[in-house]
């Protein structure tokens, strides 16, 4: 037995960073979650299959039947216009689905008992959630690249310069980060990963379809239009259509439609302000199940 072994609890620690341990711990957890992406390429592959199928379905099957008032040159729907219109919608829907990854990831961490271990460590409280949301948003960079290429192949183009396009992608990633917090909060209530697989997705389908992602809001019944106009997905999609220089169709009078970038940023800020504290609060009481 060495002297070091006798004095248990004597392992040398690092000096505390000026900003505290939060950022360090969050990055350690994020690195772990990103390594997971590399180790299980199947997961990434299948998370790409769905949006790619959507691109192909809407571009070649539904697109011809969906008119975009104010954008189609003639009276009949124009598929090349629709494909330009479609891609920002696909981007918006895809980043929204980042939430499901957070839900399932946290449910798995609870199921495997990892949450117990993390909570028994002297690490900063929010780090598991900050790391999770950061990694789930960062993963979307790769997803957006693959989707962008798919879009290019079916005729989508960036028409308003690299700078605005970059802003559009940043907005999309910020939105992914936001919904990852909502997904995390849901994940912490899941009894098992199987339930999380379903519950992580169910709310996302109505949320993304009750928007301008695939069809113009003007084509919806009157009572539904305000909901779609105030849906943050609609403002996100409209903002990115603007920034990519893609057709927007007729823009509604509602404030979110008139100020899509601002409304998207406010929505994200409000959602994070609600769901980050809620999630952290829940995390502090969570144990493995």
């Amino acid at each position: 037995m060495s002297a070091a072994e006798k004095t248990a609890g004597s392992a040398p620690t690092r000096s505390r960073p000026i900003v505290g341990w939060g950022v360090h711990d969050g990055l350690v957890v994020a690195r772990r979650n990103l390594i997971q992406t590399v180790r299980v390429p199947e997961l990434l592959f299948f998370s790409l299959v769905q949006p790619v199928i959507f691109v192909l379905l809407f571009a070649f099957v539904f697109g011809g039947a969906i008119p975009i008032p104010g954008a189609d040159p003639g009276s009949a729907p124009d598929t090349s216009v629709y494909r330009q219109y479609l891609m920002p919608g696909i981007f918006g829907q895809t980043v929204a689905f980042a939430a499901a990854a957070s839900t399932v990831g946290l449910a798995e961490d609870m199921h495997r008992g990892l949450i117990d271990r993390f909570r028994s460590l002297p690490m900063s409280t929010g780090a598991v959630l900050f790391g999770r949301t950061f990694a789930d948003a960062a993963r979307q960079i790769l997803v957006l690249i693959v989707l962008g290429i798919t879009g290019y192949l079916v005729g989508w183009r960036i028409n308003d310069g690299v700078f605005n396009a970059t802003l559009a992608f940043i907005l999309l990633l910020f939105f992914a980060y936001t919904v990852a917090w909502v997904g995390s909060w849901i994940g912490l209530y899941m009894p098992n990963p199987e339930t999380a697989n379903t519950a992580g997705l169910v709310w996302l389908f109505p949320l993304t379809f009750l928007s301008n992602a695939f069809v113009p809001i003007t084509s919806m019944p009157d009572w539904l239009q305000p909901i779609a106009q105030w849906n943050p997905i609609s403002s996100l999609v409209l903002a990115t259509r603007d920034l990519f220089g893609n057709p927007t169709g007729i823009i509604g009078d509602a404030w979110p439609q008139q100020n899509p970038v601002l409304y998207t940023l406010i929505s994200c800020a409000v959602l994070i302000a609600i769901f980050a504290p809620l999630s952290i609060r829940r995390y502090r009481r969570t144990t493995a199940r």
């Binding site: 392992a11 620690t13 350690v28 772990r32 390594i35 997971q36 495997r112 271990r117 690490m123 780090a127």
Partner: peptide
């Protein structure tokens, strides 16, 4: 309670980092 996708060494590194 260890990460399924990391290697053994990576797991220990992660927990060591989180103990600072």
């Amino acid at each position: 309670a260890v990460d399924e996708y990391l290697t053994g060494r990576e797991n220990l590194r992660m927990f060591g980092d989180l103990y600072h």
